[in-house]
C-alpha cells in the first residue's frame, strides 16, 4: 500500500512516473465515465431542477408516490433486517463449522447475484402462487403471499441475502482466534465470548452488509414486479411507478421520483463507505 502514498497536492496534481500513458488512459477514463455515467445522471438532475420546488414537493407528497416510496423503503428495511439475522446464521455455519455440502451451500449464496432478476421474479411468483409448491401449503392456512406486500418482501429478502453474507464472511474468517482463546482462558463462557469479543469486531461488517442489501432492495425492479400484484397505494413499488409515469409521458413525475431515490442511494453509498472504513480500522483489514 505504501506505493499508493497520497501525492503532495501542493506541488502537482499527479506525480511523475516512469510508466507512460497517464495522459492517454486518464483522458479516456474521464471521457468514457462522463459519456456513459456522469452526463446521463446529470441530465436527470437538470431535468428535475427545471421544476419549481412547489411542483417537486407536490409530486413527492402525492398519495400514490408517497405510498410507493414508503413501501419501497419500508419493505427494504424489513428485508435487510431479516437478511441480517439469517445472514448471520449462514455466515457462522460457513465460517466456523464443517458439515457435508458446505462448499455447495457456500456457492449457492451467490445465486441471487447471478440469476437474472426476471427469472427470479417468475420463479418466486410461481412458487408462492396458490397452486405453487409453497403457495399451496400456505393457502389452506389463509396466508396469501403472491400479489401482496408479503410477496414483495420475499423477493427483496432473496436478492439481498448475498450482500450480508459476502460482506461479513471475509471479516469473520480473518478474525484472530487467539482473542477468543484468551477470553475463554480468563473464564468467559462461550456465549459471553461471542457477545463481547466476536460481535464487536464484526458489527461494522454487518452494518455494511445491511446497508448494501437495503440499497439494492430499494432500487430492485425485476424480481419484484411479478410477485407484487402492483396495486397502486398497496403493492406498487417506487421503481415501477417511475416506469408507469414514463409510459404516461409524465416525465416530471418520473424524474422527480428517480431523483429522490438517487439522492437516497448516494447518501447510503456515503454511509457504506464510512462503515467500510470503520470496519477496516476495527479489524485491521486493508482490503
Amino acid at each position: 500500500m505504501s506505493a499508493l502514498a497520497a501525492p503532495r497536492v501542493g506541488d502537482r496534481l499527479w506525480q511523475r512516473s516512469a510508466i507512460p500513458g497517464f495522459g492517454l488512459t486518464m483522458g479516456v477514463t474521464i471521457l468514457w465515465l462522463s459519456l456513459i455515467v456522469l452526463i446521463p445522471l446529470a441530465g436527470l438532475f437538470i431535468k428535475t431542477a427545471e421544476l419549481s420546488p412547489d411542483r417537486i414537493f407536490a409530486i413527492l407528497t402525492a398519495p400514490r408516490t408517497f405510498n410507493a416510496l414508503k413501501l419501497s423503503f419500508g419493505l427494504s428495511l424489513v428485508a435487510a433486517a431479516v437478511n441480517l439475522v439469517f445472514g448471520a446464521v449462514i455466515v457462522w455455519a460457513l465460517v466456523r463449522y464443517e458439515f457435508p455440502g458446505k462448499r455447495l451451500l457456500d456457492a449457492l449464496v451467490d445465486i441471487p447475484f447471478a440469476l437474472p432478476t426476471a427469472v427470479a421474479g417468475i420463479a418466486l411468483t410461481n412458487l408462492y402462487a396458490d397452486n405453487g409448491w409453497i403457495g399451496a401449503l400456505l393457502a389452506p392456512l389463509g396466508i396469501q403471499v403472491a400479489f401482496t406486500p408479503l410477496g414483495i418482501l420475499i423477493a427483496l429478502i432473496f436478492i439481498g441475502l448475498p450482500f450480508v453474507v459476502r460482506t461479513v464472511q471475509p471479516v469473520l474468517e480473518d478474525l484472530d482466534k487467539d482473542l477468543e482463546e484468551a477470553a475463554a482462558t480468563l473464564g468467559a463462557g462461550r456465549w459471553t465470548t461471542v457477545r463481547r469479543v466476536i460481535l464487536p469486531a464484526v458489527v461494522p461488517a454487518f452494518l455494511t452488509g445491511f446497508a448494501l442489501a437495503f440499497a439494492r432492495a430499494v432500487g430492485e425492479y425485476g424480481s419484484v414486479i411479478f410477485i407484487a400484484g402492483n396495486l397502486p397505494n398497496v403493492s406498487e413499488i417506487a421503481p415501477l411507478l417511475i416506469v408507469i409515469r414514463l409510459e404516461e409521458f409524465r416525465y416530471a413525475d418520473a424524474t422527480t421520483i428517480a431523483c429522490a431515490m438517487l439522492v437516497a442511494s448516494f447518501v447510503l453509498l456515503f454511509v457504506i463507505n464510512v462503515l467500510q472504513r470503520w470496519s477496516q480500522h476495527r479489524t485491521g483489514r486493508t482490503g
Binding site: 499508493l4 502514498a5 497520497a6 501525492p7 497536492v9 496534481l13 499527479w14 506525480q15 512516473s17 510508466i19 500513458g21 497517464f22 486518464m26 477514463t29 465515465l33 455515467v37 456522469l38 445522471l41 436527470l44 432478476t117 440499497a215 430499494v218 432500487g219 430492485e220 425492479y221 425485476g222 421503481p239 415501477l240 417511475i242 416506469v243 428517480a258 431515490m261 438517487l262 442511494s265 448516494f266 447510503l268 453509498l269 463507505n273
Partner: peptide, 25 residues
C-alpha cells in the same frame, strides 16, 4: 492504479456509481 494523482478515491467511487443506481433509473 499505475499512477499517483489527487482525487483517486473519488474516481474509484465514480466508477462504482452505476451499482448504486436502480436499474429503472
Amino acid at each position: 492504479t499505475k499512477f499517483n494523482f489527487a482525487g483517486k478515491s473519488l474516481l474509484i467511487t465514480l466508477v462504482d456509481l452505476p451499482f448504486s443506481v436502480s436499474p429503472v433509473i
